[in-house]
Design a protein around this nucleic acid. Sequence first.
DNA 1: CCCCGTGCCCGAAACGTTTCCAAAGCAAAC
DNA 2: GTTTGCTTTGGAAACGTTTCGGGCACGGGG
Lengths: 336, 336
Amino acid sequence: MSAEPSRPTMIDVAKRAGVGLGTVSRVVNGGAGVRAETASRVHAAIEALGFQRNEVARALRPGKKSASLALVIGDLTNPFYATIAKASLEVAAQSGFAVVLGSVDEDPEGEKRAIRELVGRQVAGLMIVPDQGDHSFLAGAGVPVVFLDRPAHGIEADIVMVDNEGGGRLATEHLLGQGHQRIAILLAPSYYTTGRRLRGYRRAHRTAGLTVDESLVVQLPEGTTEAAEKATGELMDRPSPPTAIFASTNFVAEGVLRALRLVADQPAVVGFDDFRMADMLPTPVTVVASDTEELGRTAATLLLGRAAGTNTRPPQRIILPCALIPRGSGERPPFS
Amino acid sequence: MSAEPSRPTMIDVAKRAGVGLGTVSRVVNGGAGVRAETASRVHAAIEALGFQRNEVARALRPGKKSASLALVIGDLTNPFYATIAKASLEVAAQSGFAVVLGSVDEDPEGEKRAIRELVGRQVAGLMIVPDQGDHSFLAGAGVPVVFLDRPAHGIEADIVMVDNEGGGRLATEHLLGQGHQRIAILLAPSYYTTGRRLRGYRRAHRTAGLTVDESLVVQLPEGTTEAAEKATGELMDRPSPPTAIFASTNFVAEGVLRALRLVADQPAVVGFDDFRMADMLPTPVTVVASDTEELGRTAATLLLGRAAGTNTRPPQRIILPCALIPRGSGERPPFS
DNA sequence: CCCCGTGCCCGAAACGTTTCCAAAGCAAAC
DNA sequence: GTTTGCTTTGGAAACGTTTCGGGCACGGGG
């Protein structure tokens, strides 16, 4: 057993450079108020010892939060979430912040535990894509919070999201404009976003003077491609199938497209959120999409402002617009 | 300006429960050697105050690393990396570890800085998808390291990677088996993995008694779809274009497919690494792939073992196998 | 009655940094 | 020569936890 070669501390550096502890600290933090000659001696000692500041000890001082942001987010395999993670990571990195990923169980209880954990780590701020359930326990945590993609209950905080209702309306209006009358909507059980998209769907119908056939509003048991595939198959097997489908999610859209490979009369399809290869499929997929990177960037920027105390405005609600990207699948006319 | 409602500490809890500081600590850490009655009083106080252990202070004690792993990885938007992140995150979470994402600049210098940062945060271990360049500076850090996907220079450490050469051979043999003689290989400039895949390509040729036409070995300036698309276009415009293309990366494969939309004589295509929708494209894409989740899981498990001191074996090199998934694009016969 | 375990609990020390106060050096002004 | 003020430096306190050496109370054995 060799003795653990414990990393050198500022004290070691101070001894070696023949200066006081405080001086080393000052040099490490930018070196204001230190003679150049002294500073260079300290730097030499740091170099020689391979000293590396212990961020943990640094963060212990009151007021100094650790320079990290927490990100509590769903399945990174979903390009929507991955894009958010990437964008926020980039913004954070520019300010010298690291990003801590919380464990991402699906149940609200796991989410709560993960968040507690993160708060205990003294992160400077939290970015959360909230599950359903109450988030009031965050109120007293003394950490700024920004919610992404959907609001949370029980707490006033910044939130950055997409114009779900507008997007839903856009998609539906587009399909109605092609002459479709029987438009199905497949909803992943994601509660809030899904609800708003449905609302847009309804509003588009109302505006057009149509009533929606409730049997075409399909609530999926899961947000997976498999569930969507199955539901789509059943939908198209009905006596009078829909002539168009609005898929409320990128995974749902994928499932829909899979199911449709076996179908003779191809309905029009519009998805929500863009995805890779959407334009490469046999008939390119029309989607309603927003700038997901912008969403992540905005949230991170906002949070950094809060964490730094620069931004003291009341909680903001930022809503990013959606645009329709016609590619083919949404422009198919109604069959029969 | 309301006074910052600083979070309660163990001292506050101790006062409120009418016990000593040490007792609170024991209760919080499992409560061995504390009378049940006392423990419940402490728990009540914790509940009442909303106490949350300060992990930073905890990690300050010598030996105690913070319960977090660092992950230094490329673009999360790349499903390959996203999958690794997800899998390792899950494993870490099971052991109560969080995952810190390092800033992911592309240049080696940025990577080095990011790693230093992470080491300073007292993470319990590092998972790194290494850039080229020397990583010997990690040797003295006193933190266990696991490299993913490619080895690093200047340091002995565990590494988990894919059988790149075998995969390259598999892909090439498959194409040769279809009667292709002019097989192009498009290489993203990722140095190591790319080099091994090329080696597999060469070996397959040699085994088949063929010499490779060096003009068909295309080194891309970038690993982007755009670069691959451009190169593919040029490739197919040659007087005698290849009848098959081996794309060394998922992004490269995408670029190839984009370019091929405009081409009359469709070459066979095999990609490296699977990707979403590969089976949904007009002609489904044949790929060589390995279990990326397994890669992430293995690395995380290995690292946790090192961090806990459970695993003291000499550094391991784990190589995951690749399998060919025929879907259509790789089974196209040579044209003309 | 004394001694010694055995549980349970207390509180000080230590971890490595930042920050604050004071001291020291020095130059300029008187 | 003294004062004043500024720059540079040293060192102690504080951050919130874990850990460790005791202390106290109680009970049983001698």
